[in-house]
Design a protein around this nucleic acid. Structure first.
Lengths: 145, 145
DNA sequence: GCTTGACCTAAACTTAGCTTGAGGTTGCAT
DNA sequence: ATGCAACCTCAAGCTAAGTTTAGGTCAAGC
């Protein structure tokens, strides 16, 4: 039978995420490994799935802070069940749906602007400030906030 | 008749972009104002449109470097015509279309994963590395590149 | 002629998501 | 028991897209 815990190097190999990134995720609260006698990190096998989830969520445009909120819904300590994962995936689906909708809307407005060639702050719908895309992370914060 | 040139403060007011950001855009090559006798920036009225374009492109998720490439296609010196703007808008539309397509694909794959609850690196389609989203800017560079 | 607001440069600070480096420890195989 | 890879911490550095601060100049009204 396989060992119950895996090292950081093994987790890195299984997920394709750099060791330094895994430590960084821990700092951000996304992972909570145990420690060996010699102070080395010991991960649960289910943490592979946890990291995988992070990768997917990032692909969908979520920031680590948002991802952490999702992960926080998983049971502390015990291995998450299939149902646990399905619940959290569904919640995420809604976020990504909203994001796609906004992107589509913006694109359609661009289409209109191509027609009129306006690009004018006073006329063009594109400049509606409240209609911000859910682009998190670095960006024109002063403009979007 | 209106003055031919506008100051940085006026450009800021017209576009809603902070003065500091306008200077920053210039550093990045997005704007090339002339200078007054007293070394103050003097913008063309058409620069309002130029900045507007930057705002839209950012909404669509493009980074400043990408935006600069688009803007570089505009005629140097003379005021861009409606046709100029339409050409560049159309090019951008393609980028955004591609982005939406990828987002949709990723979401559909997430749907499958909700069904199977797998989230497994070995089985799940979601982990196809080449299928990266066009999320530019800061992010997991080592993973995406 | 003087004050005030808009403008100038240069450099430092911010957040997100990491990587890199320095210097030290652990754990496994020979 | 020794050697070496893998691990540890802490600090500094990187990019994007700006903002903030400090110290100085310009232009206009009174």
């Amino acid at each position: 039978m396989q060992a119950q815990f895996i090292s950081i190097g093994q987790l890195a190999k299984r997920t394709g995420v750099a060791v330094s990134a895994l430590r960084f995720y821990e700092e951000k609260g996304l992972l909570n490994p145990l420690r060996s006698g010699g102070n080395q990190r010991r991960y649960l096998r289910s943490d592979i799935r946890r990291v995988s989830f992070v990768l997917i969520a990032q692909k969908l445009g979520l920031g680590l802070a948002e991802i952490e909120e999702h992960l926080a819904q998983l049971p502390e300590g015990r291995n998450p069940t299939l149902t646990d994962w399905q619940k959290i995936s569904r919640a995420m689906r809604e976020q990504i749906d909203a994001r796609i909708t906004l992107l589509n809307r913006t694109r359609n407005q661009l289409d209109q602007c191509i027609g009129c060639g306006c690009l004018s702050l006073t006329k063009c719908q594109l400049y509606n400030k409240d209609d911000k895309l859910g682009l998190k992370g670095p960006g024109p914060r002063a403009v979007l906030d």
